[in-house]
Design a protein around this nucleic acid. Structure first.
Length: 431
DNA sequence: TCTGGGGTCCTAGGACCC
DNA sequence: TCTGGGGTCCTAGGACCC
């Protein structure tokens, strides 16, 4: 085996698989999980994919098709998926000292000094253990760079030669065989090549992953950018994308939602952005960060023909960085007051925290400079709120300006219980 | 009737400075 | 008639990812 190797392990149809763990009647049927606001399909079982349902396809377009085939539709249950993800990542992390949790359902491992190991066999063990301990089926791809591990992972799921085993280790294949497989993957299937670039590459005669691997990196750097150049080099076995062992500090935090119904009242928008600001503030404190600026934005529904469109945004700079929910809410509400125009029907609003920086031990300074006693009290209050909301459930304690009824809230018509994180919903073993 | 949310990086171009 | 050049910083927009 050659020097360093990477593995990409990811959950198959992750959200659907999480739901199936707790409801086995979903096995063998077309199942989709919807995005926030029950908007579009973000996860599909194999059976749903076989019906032709696309990733990101609006739900209303597939509703009839799905019901004709006794399909099941679920609202997304992020609390459940996040908890299942944590368990899965813990198991995967046991297989190498170097792990990057890349997304909710994907993890890279790096193998350095494993040359006496059979990584293919190790891949099979990971699959087996994750399945046994969490109930989630995963696929494993192994290669000398992250991009190649990604490609191998794709083959492990889609190519008949690997699908049954669920593991594809490029190192097992002679070079000419590898090229043969690369030729069978569309260039848009390469990690880092999206739909836009795929089209542009196709126009230049680059159709497959193999074509891209053989293309001249310098030329494509000029025509595209340095990111694509790195992709080409990675396809040729030269690692250019480092493993991010520790998650880097966030540079911005966004909290936004589409509304269940079009919103026209200013009071509703004020409530909504107050609530988003509070959510963002909580994330901020969780990462021990403070924000130097806040941007608030509104948006009308771009999908309604002839609807007058308006999507304004306003940036508010703070005199000193803050992590105080009250100050963030105040800024967000002030922004809406400036931006609001009564003649539009709003579909979405959001809050973005920017200029983020780390917070030291002396958090008191992050509040107004004059009143350190009051600030200390406020800090304790917020810490208490965060703890309570973490333990008792989101929104248990919140600011009054976030609203009580929250008529603007998103739709979640088919939500499953929080099986693993709420006492009342705990799944009880049945004989 | 009904179309998600949260991120990152790169580049070009303008503002500004000396 | 003739009107510099180079560096840095910031922002907006566009691409990508899941």
């Amino acid at each position: 085996m050659s020097r360093m190797q990477y593995a990409l392990v990811d959950g198959n149809n992750f959200y659907v698989s999480c739901e199936r763990v707790f409801d086995p009647t979903l096995e063998g049927r077309p199942v989709i999980v919807l995005s926030n606001n029950d908007g579009c399909a973000v996860a599909r079982s194999d059976e749903a994919k076989a019906l032709g349902i696309q990733m990101g396809q609006p739900y209303f377009e597939v509703r009839d098709l799905l019901s004709q085939h006794q399909g099941v539709v679920l609202s997304s249950n992020y609390t459940l998926y996040a908890d299942m993800s944590r368990r899965m990542m813990t198991v995967i992390g046991g297989y190498s000292p170097e792990q990057e949790v890349y997304s909710i359902d994907e993890s890279f491992l790096r193998f350095k000094g494993f040359s006496h190991w059979d990584l293919t066999d190790l891949g099979r063990q990971v699959r087996h253990q994750v399945r046994q301990w969490t109930g989630i089926p995963v696929g494993v791809g192994i290669g000398p760079t992250k991009t190649l591990a990604k490609l191998a992972n794709r083959l492990s799921k889609k190519h008949p030669d690997f699908k049954a085993r669920g593991v594809c280790n490029l190192d097992d294949l002679p070079p000419w065989t590898q090229l043969d497989y690369f030729a069978q993957v569309e260039v848009g299937g390469v990690w880092g090549v999206g739909a836009r670039w795929a089209r542009k590459l196709n126009e230049q005669g680059i159709l497959s992953a193999l074509d891209l691997k053989l293309a001249d990196p310098e030329t494509l750097r000029k025509r595209f950018n340095v990111v694509l150049e790195r992709t080409i080099r990675e396809l040729n076995g030269l690692p250019c994308i480092p493993l991010e062992d520790a998650p880097p500090a966030k540079k911005q935090i966004v909290s936004s939602r589409s509304f269940g119904q079009p919103v026209t009242r200013k009071t509703d928008l004020l409530e909504a952005v107050a609530s988003y600001a509070a959510t963002a503030a909580q994330k901020l404190r969780k990462g021990n960060q403070a924000a130097g600026a806040l941007q608030v934005f509104l948006a009308t529904n771009p999908f309604i023909p002839n609807e007058p469109q308006y999507h304004p945004a306003l940036l508010i700079n703070f005199p000193s960085p803050t992590q105080d929910t009250a100050r963030l809410i105040e800024a967000a509400r002030a922004g809406v007051a400036r931006l609001f125009r009564p003649e539009f029907r709003y579909k979405k609003a959001g809050v973005m925290l920017m200029d983020l920086g780390p917070v030291g031990i002396r958090q008191g300074e992050l509040f107004s400079a004059e009143d350190t006693v009051g600030d200390e009290r406020r800090r304790r209050l917020l810490t208490t709120m965060d703890t309570l909301n973490a333990e008792m459930g989101k929104g248990t304690l919140r600011f009054a300006v976030e609203g009580i009824g929250q008529s603007w809230k998103m739709r979640r018509g088919n939500l499953t219980p929080a099986y693993t994180t709420e006492w009342d919903a705990l799944a009880i073993g049945r004989a």
